[in-house]
């Protein structure tokens, strides 16, 4: 048996499927925060390997990682260009530009670290969202004691996206049949054609807002006040333990970087070889 998550169908017995939404949200926050603290390339590499290994354990199809390659290439080339031409990373200067920035022996290594930082966040977030449904996110937001109105808005936005894309295609086809050409003219005139397309879409959406509002009010939905839930997610001791461990890992990363310097650039073990 498989279960539908935000992106894919995954096996129902995936260990991450058994978790409460709260530790899953905590895991997203932890991966992103830890990646933001770390600067050292080797610990980054170890973290990425750990996340990829977790993909296997969580039974998430590895094909998901390949789909992220395009995003990683786009970000990587920009990071490298940015650091090569406009940075002053301390080290042995190899080339100095007339505008005052320079390329040192550490420039490429530092830009590689920054690429790995982005990769870690991307892989970590994808891993969690591959094992999380939009309902999990709703309950996760509620578990964080945030207003359920926020969870409601988030879920509605997710569901409305595909409806909008259908409406967009219908309105665009109708406009083409009436003689609008979206592919001719300057960029500005094409942009104006697309902007005109938004006007009927907004009125369709406004009508939908009224219909949805009647529907939710008929179901007893209010902005504040208590509400009941169809599905129950019980927080088990393991969920609490995992959440505490995740919070501790952020604290530990902070100490390792700012107190012991292990995770600062170039970090362990490169600092031993480079004598820093």
């Amino acid at each position: 048996m498989s279960q539908r998550s935000m992106f894919v169908h995954i096996s129902k017995d995936s260990p991450l499927n058994l978790l409460h939404p709260l530790p899953k949200l905590a895991l997203i926050l932890t991966i992103n925060t830890v990646a933001l603290i770390i600067e050292a390339p080797i610990p980054f590499l170890m973290l990425i390997i750990l996340v990829v290994f977790t993909f296997r354990i969580a039974k998430v199809p590895i094909i998901r990682i390949w789909r992220l390659i395009a995003a990683l290439i786009i970000v990587s080339q920009a990071v490298i260009i940015s650091y090569v031409f406009t940075s002053r990373i301390p080290g042995k200067i190899i080339y100095e530009f007339p505008w005052g920035t320079y390329v040192s022996d550490m420039t490429l290594l530092f830009s590689l670290s920054m690429i790995m930082r982005y990769s870690t966040m991307l892989l970590g977030s994808t891993l969690i969202l591959c094992t999380t449904s939009d309902r999990d996110i709703t309950y996760g937001i509620f578990s964080l004691k945030l207003p359920y109105s926020l969870a409601f808005i988030f879920t509605l936005a997710f569901r409305s996206t595909s409806i909008f894309i259908d409406d967009f295609a219908k309105v665009r086809d109708a406009m083409i049949l009436r003689g609008t050409n979206f592919y001719k003219g300057s960029i500005v005139s094409r942009a104006r054609s697309y902007a005109r397309l938004l006007i009927p879409l907004i009125f369709i959406a406004l009508r939908r807002v009224v219909e949805y509002t009647y529907a939710v009010e008929a179901k007893g939905f209010t902005v504040t006040g208590k509400r009941t839930y169809l599905h129950r997610y019980d927080v088990k001791p393991r969920d609490i333990v995992i959440s505490i461990l995740l919070a501790s890992s952020v604290f530990l990363t902070f100490i390792l970087k700012y107190w012991l310097g292990i995770l600062s650039f170039p970090g362990w073990p490169l600092n031993m070889f480079l004598g820093r």
Binding site: F154, L156, A157, A205
Partner: peptide, 24 residues
Amino acid sequence: EAVRGGIKPGHLVVSGVFGGICAG
């Protein structure tokens, strides 16, 4: 139903529906 501060469920629906449109 008007509730505290005049915020109605419709305001939340506005955010949700137009959030979907902005995403698209």
